[in-house]
């Protein structure tokens, strides 16, 4: 879901972690990011009981595959939050499931106690880096049932390791699902973006996003709620050139089609990119 402060200065996307069927309240888990754009610093520093926030309806970006014979969930750090919501759906269901939860050190294992004590206790394994208890992905994938689906949420290195490990184990892409947490900085060289409607040309420097380049000179008005390639509000058509996609909104097929891009995270693969704005 998208969460904004009342003044609209901060807007971030967070996963619902409470039971999706319990509509009396929502719960979100927010990690204080050192490289925060302000959103998590605001949530940690200024939000207290009684604070008013503006939010969107939660949108399920990371659904469990109903065709799976077994759900194998792999969480790293704050990536545990979307799984906490899913565990409510899995509880008491017919499909077996298991959660593998890796974190840095004992004090960073968020919600470990409730996972250990609750109805999921027999389904959860913890991997604590500082204690040398590491998740052996190769062994996990080697023993995976043919109809099992793998879901991973956490930092990029974990997601990459799962995707690569699954590939090496011969697990089909359709059985591997991922959601990236802590938006990876979209890296790449500078390029020129052309706003077709006004003809304005803007330089997007290394370390800057197209959205920032547009906002810096007020070249156009762009609505963007999450600013991290999740919500899809800043999707814009590509007229010329190709994008290097960094979002989690478009499907692989849509990314390959090069019809549109998310201005908040995606970059140009070509020196010049003409967009319908």
């Amino acid at each position: 879901m998208i969460v904004q402060d009342p003044a609209g200065s901060f807007s971030n996307a967070y996963s619902l972690m409470s039971d999706p069927r319990d509509l009396s309240h929502y719960q979100i888990g927010v990690r204080l990011e050192e490289q925060s754009r302000g959103g998590s610093a605001f949530m940690h520093g200024q939000v207290e009981v009684g604070t008013r926030l503006t939010i969107s309806t939660p949108n399920n970006l990371f659904a469990l595959d109903p065709g799976a014979g077994r759900h194998v969930l792999i969480a790293g750090g704050i990536g545990i939050t979307p799984f906490l919501a899913q565990l409510h759906d899995l509880e008491g269901g017919a499909t077996p499931y298991e959660l593998h939860y890796a974190f840095r050190s004992p004090e960073h294992g968020a919600f470990q106690a409730e996972l250990e004590q609750g109805p999921h206790a027999g389904h959860v394994r913890f991997y604590i880096d500082s204690l040398g208890r590491k998740l052996d992905l190769a062994a996990l994938f080697a023993g995976l049932a043919a109809d099992a689906h793998v879901y991973v949420c956490g930092p990029k290195p974990l997601i990459d390791a799962v995707i690569e490990g699954a590939k090496a184990a011969g697990i089909a892409d359709e059985r591997v699902h991922w959601e990236q947490f802590a938006a990876a900085p979209a890296e790449g060289a500078a390029f020129t973006v052309v706003l077709a409607r006004s003809g304005r040309e803007l330089r997007v420097e290394e370390g800057m996003t197209i959205l920032q380049a547009i906002e810096n000179v007020k070249a156009a008005k762009v609505e963007c709620l999450c600013r991290e390639g999740v919500c899809g509000t800043c999707e814009t058509a590509i007229l010329e050139g190709e994008a290097e996609h960094f979002d989690q909104y478009l499907s692989d097929a849509e990314k390959a089609a090069q019809q549109s891009l998310m201005l908040c995270v995606s970059r140009a693969r070509t020196a010049r990119l003409v967009i319908d704005l």
């Binding site: 929502y26 207290e48 009981v49 009684g50 004090e107």
Partner: peptide, 19 residues
């Protein structure tokens, strides 16, 4: 619009907010 009804420090870096 929602109101924050609970804030809990889950780890040194993670807070849980109830809305």
């Amino acid at each position: 619009s929602v109101r924050v009804s609970a804030v809990e420090q889950a780890t040194p870096l993670i807070k849980r907010f109830t809305l």
